[in-house]
Design a protein around this nucleic acid. Structure first.
Length: 490
RNA sequence: GGCGCCAUGGUGCAUCGGUUAGCACACGGCUCUUUCAAGGCCGGGAGAGGGGUUCAACUCCCCUUGGCGCCGCCA
């Protein structure tokens, strides 16, 4: 335990699949903790029993670990400030809320949901700022007892200061100030005895000695609530860090509506690389103050600072993510890439489990040929299919363009014969053979190459033809060309 | 509606009083080439508007406009 070092927490609620915004916040937490030699804690804010979603905590942990952002304290790893589930910390909240009630900074509220709803309607109609009217704030003993009889399950509200302003310093916003007469007496303990976020997070952040609270800009408006709780307890508030939100392509806050863009696990499934994602997320809303695109994890940790966090929202740019992903794929060694796509090729039925030595050897050759063009790992099976399957499906447009000519069968036949006659199957010989056919027939090399590519791969695009022919192998190539020549022979 | 935050090209950032306003992505063109990528080269494209402060403002202040966020017994 190093009390003088920063302690940051990521505090998700298990109410759904983690999304890009959650993870980006975690990236900032993680980077700053690592940069300072501090502690990164994971705390689960499961105080809403109605919205609990089975499996979402597991997804969150999986996402963090996939990103290489292992927490130092929290679920599965423990730590000196546990438990790390708020649902297991109820005693703490009740103990501290008692203090607030005793000091007059919190009170029981017996108002029914119906009355609250009615009140809001009236406020809305009168164009008044919405908020609790504090009817229960100054109840005398007698009326309190009466109310308690009518509503035995009261909530507890925090008694906000109504005078002056609440001010705070935010690491990315600077000085921020809120008028207290506009503040609301919010609920801190619900009727079911569970605390609300506003209360639980403050109590826990204090108890867990959190020094920096990093959370989305959406929380800034409720920061005065938290500040006043700290004041009421006489506690030292943390350094506030409210980075701007990540917006979807329409400029709105990322939400369930843009599910495809936001659900973090889908990026794992698509085969993005953790380091590419880390690089992307870190540089979205943060900058080292220089014109640079690529940062390794170590560089990110070394350079990360709160000052570099941007104060304006950023729109999620998939094209940029993909560009970075391509960069990272190309930086991999062939062996690394091969290992990464192996499971996907096994799933496609191209490689057995476990793979044989020959299959691995072949995989490496194939991988070397597609590395430059592969972006998402999930594209690999489709991209390499013709290396594994001899059932060639001809691309319609390509066939029309390169195979439908009268001369096609003759060309294909000539290529096949020439290739079949090669005694040494080498790249140089293959290229010489194909160019030789072109010369012999008096046509351009392209007139040989395109039909041959179609015959061997069924497509108009892909790795270099000579290289790919070499890897697929003599007999298979010759067979495919013969087959194609026959198909287009009539 | 109230409150809060924000405002550099389509997008993400740089420049934190003096620059021909820079980089990257995307886009367009050229190049390399057997195709597709990757690479190289070139190009179009920005300080929301208005007031101040200052010798000087994208940079500081104010207003307007615009965008976003929050206003739950949800987080």
């Amino acid at each position: 335990m190093t009390p003088d070092k920063p302690r940051l927490r990521m505090a998700p609620s298990p109410t759904g699949s983690p999304h890009i915004g959650n993870i980006r916040t975690a990236v900032f937490d993680y980077l700053y903790a690592r940069h300072t030699g501090g502690t990164f804690v994971l705390r689960i804010e499961d105080t809403d029993r109605n919205r609990f979603v089975e499996g979402s905590l597991e997804e969150m942990m999986r996402a963090l670990r996939w990103m290489g952002m292992q927490w130092d304290e929290g679920p599965e790893v423990g730590g000196p400030f546990g438990p790390y589930f708020q649902s297991q910390r109820l005693d703490f909240y009740h103990k501290y809320v008692r203090r607030l009630i005793d000091s007059g900074r919190a009170y029981y509220c017996y108002c029914t949901k119906e009355r609250l709803e009615e009140m809001r309607k009236v406020q809305e109609a009168a164009k008044l700022p919405p908020g609790y009217d504090r009817r229960c704030r100054d109840l005398d003993e007698q009326s309190r007892n009466q109310c308690a009889q009518e509503n035995p399950k009261p909530v507890i509200r925090f008694a906000m200061n109504t005078q002056g302003v609440t001010e705070l310093e935010d690491a990315v916003r600077g000085h921020v100030s809120f008028r207290n007469d506009l503040q609301d007496d919010f609920v801190i303990i619900k009727a079911d005895g569970y605390p609300t976020y506003h209360f639980a997070s403050v109590v826990d952040d204090h108890l867990m000695k959190i020094t920096h609270v990093v959370r989305g800009d959406e929380w800034l408006s409720s920061a005065p609530k938290h500040m006043q709780i700290y004041e009421a307890f006489g506690w030292q508030p943390p350094v506030w860090v409210h980075p701007s939100l990540i917006l979807d392509e329409t400029g709105k806050k990322l939400s369930k509506r843009s599910e495809a863009q936001t659900r973090f696990l889908s990026y794992i499934e698509d085969g993005y690389l953790p380091d590419a994602m880390l690089n992307f997320l870190a540089t979205m809303g943060w900058s080292a103050g220089e014109d640079r695109k690529l940062y390794s994890r170590e560089e990110l940790i070394e350079k990360f600072s709160l000052e570099g966090i941007t104060n304006h929202p950023a729109i999620f740019d998939l094209a940029k993510l993909n560009d970075l992903q391509g960069e990272y794929v190309r930086m991999l060694t062939v062996g690394q890439l091969a290992d990464m796509i192996l499971p996907r090729l096994q799933q496609a039925g191209f490689i057995s489990e476990p793979p044989s030595a020959q299959e691995l050897d072949y995989l490496h050759k194939v991988t070397g040929l597609i590395q430059d063009r592969l972006v998402l790992l999930k594209e690999a099976p489709e991209m390499v299919s013709f290396f594994y399957s001899d059932e060639i499906e001809y691309d319609e447009k390509g066939a029309k363009k390169h195979l439908a000519k009268d001369t096609t069968p003759a060309i294909l036949k000539a290529v096949s014969i020439k290739l079949a006659s090669l005694e040494e199957w080498s790249l140089a010989n293959i290229e010489a053979a194909l160019r030789g056919v072109a010369d012999a027939l008096g046509v351009k090399a392209a007139d040989i190459i395109h039909p041959t590519r179609m015959a061997v791969t069924g497509r108009t695009w892909g790795p270099g033809l000579f290289e790919l022919i070499e890897v697929v192998g003599q007999s298979r190539v010759v067979a495919r060309i013969d087959c194609c020549a026959e198909k287009y022979g009539h």
